[in-house]
């Protein structure tokens, strides 16, 4: 379980807190999707969880273990693939397996590549792969050390809609295998509803949780079904309200609200 308690982050230079008193518990195996307007602290939340930044107050725990520096049980996929260009695809996937003997490392990396549908690509250079393939390598790299929690920071935002949909399926298939806890930050409401068990809508200035929306749709989810659409509308409305404080929760969103970003 991933627990956030009273988490606050103010960046040096002061100003409004990027994150203010966030309390959240993500259950083991749950997929939590975080959406929110720009400046709502969603990326800050993920960087704190990855141990890349320090919280100003409050704390994060994974199964009772405090996270202050990068934690071995937490993997992260960034917005860009961030593959190391001087390593082959296989060596990139094996990058986090430094503590294991060479043969085991290679085997684990090849397994991870196979799971993301890139078997046989191990000896290529990252530059020889398309954007979607590179992001899959990044996912394989994060999953290779078998983390308990996987963080994704708008991982598919740079990809076209078709590639994105295929990667959603890939991600869900991978999640089914080992059921890690997943926290995905996205600005794509459809993506959030496709993937999330629960959608956390955040609000900016200061960054905080506005609303939590459970999504009780069976997987695989049909993007055309009325229930999917209803969940999407609910999230859009919450987002809209979160950005327009004059509309208290529950009031109808103004026309064109879907273009909140």
């Amino acid at each position: 379980m991933l627990t956030f308690a009273n988490l606050t982050k103010t960046y040096a230079g002061g100003g409004v807190a990027a994150l203010s008193q966030v309390d959240l518990a993500v259950q083991a195996g749950e997929i939590a999707a975080i959406v929110g307007g720009s400046g709502c602290g969603k990326t800050t939340l993920l960087r704190l969880t990855a141990g890349l930044d320090q919280a100003s107050s409050g704390f994060i725990e994974i199964d009772g273990d405090r996270v202050t520096t990068p934690h071995p049980a937490i993997g992260i996929v960034f917005q860009e693939p961030r593959l190391l260009p001087w390593l082959t695809v296989r060596d990139n996937v094996a990058f986090g397996l430094g503590d294991q003997p060479r043969a085991a490392r290679r085997q684990r990396a090849d397994e991870a590549l196979e799971r993301v549908g890139l078997a046989g690509y191990g000896d290529r250079w990252p530059r020889e792969l398309s954007g979607g393939q590179q992001q899959r390598v990044a996912i394989a790299r994060a999953l290779a050390p078998r983390p308990k929690a996987l963080l994704l920071d708008e991982p598919f935002s740079a990809l076209d809609a078709f590639t994105r949909a295929s990667l959603h399926d890939h991600l869900l298939a991978l999640w089914e295998e080992s059921r890690p806890t997943v926290v995905i930050v996205t600005h794509d409401v459809e993506e959030a509803v496709t993937l999330g068990d629960r959608i956390i809508v955040m609000q900016p200035r200061p960054g905080r949780i506005y609303e939590e929306i459970p999504v009780d749709l069976p997987r695989p989810r049909d993007r055309m079904s009325p229930n999917f659409d209803a969940a999407k509308r609910r999230v859009l409305k919450a987002l809209d309200n979160s950005l327009n404080p004059q509309h208290p929760p529950g009031q109808a969103a103004p026309a064109g609200g879907a273009l909140w970003w």
């Binding site: 196979e114 549908g117 398309s130 393939q133 076209d160 078709f162 590639t163 295929s166």
Partner: peptide, 14 residues
Amino acid sequence: PAAHAAADMDGDAP
């Protein structure tokens, strides 16, 4: 086969 199809689906694979 699914994996291959997915690999090809990324489109701009050089």
